[in-house]
Amino acid sequence: MIVYGIKTCGTVQKALAALSAAGKAPVLRDVRKTPLTPEEIAEFVAAFGDKLINRSSTTWRGLSETERAAPIEALLRAHPTLMKRPVIRGNGLTLGWDAAAQKAHS
């Protein structure tokens, strides 16, 4: 099970703790240290569309209107922390750590 995110994200930390407590042995893939590959970006965009971009993040607020208009793939290559977190690869792909994601990985 791979958890894509950043180690300082509170939501990622909660997901990792819950998954570990459930005996899942999650592995954190810090997208700052190991950026997503073009194939992973394409897969995530296909699965989640524009929901993949965290439009409430500090990074997003710092972008110009021109930068915000770029394709999702270009945004994630340039700014990996724009990805909504976590993306979890386990029983399929899930985005975030809401009740549906928790149920999918229980």
Rank of each mutant, 00 (worst) to 15 (best):
M1Y: 11
M1V: 14
V3R: 02
V3N: 00
Y4H: 09
G5E: 03
G5T: 04
I6S: 06
I6N: 04
I6F: 07
K7A: 10
K7Q: 07
K7L: 00
C9Y: 03
G10L: 11
T11K: 07
V12S: 02
A15L: 08
A15Q: 02
A15H: 04
A18H: 10
A18W: 13
L19K: 05
G23V: 12
K24D: 05
A25K: 15
P26T: 09
R29L: 14
V31L: 14
R32Y: 13
K33N: 12
K33W: 06
K33F: 08
T34E: 15
P35I: 10
L36S: 06
L36A: 10
T37C: 11
T37K: 13
T37A: 10
T37Y: 10
T37G: 09
P38E: 12
P38Y: 12
E40Y: 06
E40M: 15
I41T: 03
A42P: 07
E43Y: 00
E43C: 11
E43G: 02
F44T: 00
V45D: 01
A46G: 13
A47Q: 01
G49V: 09
D50R: 10
D50V: 08
K51E: 06
L52N: 01
I53W: 01
I53M: 01
I53R: 00
R55S: 03
S56W: 03
T59G: 01
T59P: 00
W60D: 01
R61G: 11
R61P: 02
R61S: 12
L63Q: 06
S64Y: 04
S64E: 04
S64L: 08
E65K: 08
T66H: 14
T66N: 13
R68D: 05
A69L: 11
A70K: 12
P71A: 14
I72Q: 04
E73M: 07
E73A: 15
A74D: 14
A74E: 15
L75R: 04
L76S: 02
L76H: 02
R77S: 11
R77D: 03
A78I: 07
H79Q: 13
H79E: 07
H79T: 06
P80W: 03
T81K: 14
L82M: 08
L82V: 09
L82I: 09
R85W: 06
R85H: 07
P86H: 04
P86T: 07
V87F: 01
V87A: 00
I88T: 03
R89Y: 10
R89A: 15
R89S: 14
R89K: 15
G90I: 02
N91W: 08
G92E: 08
G92K: 10
L93V: 06
T94M: 03
L95K: 01
D98C: 10
D98M: 11
A100R: 12
A100Y: 06
A101H: 01
Q102V: 12
Q102S: 06
K103C: 08
A104V: 02
H105E: 04
H105D: 04
S106G: 15
S106I: 10
S106P: 10
